[in-house]
Design a protein around this nucleic acid. Structure first.
Length: 133
DNA sequence: ATGTTGACGGTTG
DNA sequence: TCAACCGCCAACA
């Protein structure tokens, strides 16, 4: 089985520049409507892997809360990296609550069929990898 | 097997 | 709008 995190990463890769999605929407696309929290957990480590070719192409910063609020200040100290990355892409972020206008930037998302194809490709890749081993 | 850990989300006051 | 509370879930030890 392909891990839940791997599926999350594939969907996030599909978010176009200038658009954002939410943890809950990603979870629903993956037929796990209650797993929004797990989606966030899957994404949290990516910011430290910008030099890892396997993960550096995942636009983790394009995922925010349902209301468009960006989480800054992990571990006490304020971290505005996500805000800066979004602004670079032309997404305006309101202060002081660091909020994105979801009316304007929300990504439509993938259809169930598209998600199905995505997962299928992942399964094939994994199969090929295990065969090689 | 079991408990812990949260980039969440819905509800309530 | 805001915050406190609570239920969920996948990964990891």
């Amino acid at each position: 089985m392909v891990s839940f995190y791997a599926k999350v990463y594939e969907v996030v890769r599909c978010i176009p520049t200038g658009k954002v999605s939410s943890y809950g929407r990603i979870a629903r696309m993956l037929w796990a409507p209650q797993a929004s929290r797990a989606v966030g957990y899957a994404l949290r480590g990516l910011r430290h892997r910008i030099h890892d070719p396997d993960y550096s192409d995942i636009p983790w910063h394009r995922v925010v809360s349902k209301e468009g609020i960006i989480r800054v200040g992990v571990q006490g100290e304020e971290d505005l990296l996500q805000v800066e990355l979004l602004q670079t892409e032309g997404v305006e972020v309101g202060a002081p609550k660091y909020r994105v206008d979801m009316k304007k930037h929300l990504w439509k998302g993938l259809s169930p069929e598209e998600v199905g194809e995505l997962i299928e490709q992942l399964e094939l890749l994994k199969e090929a990898a295990t065969d090689r081993a």
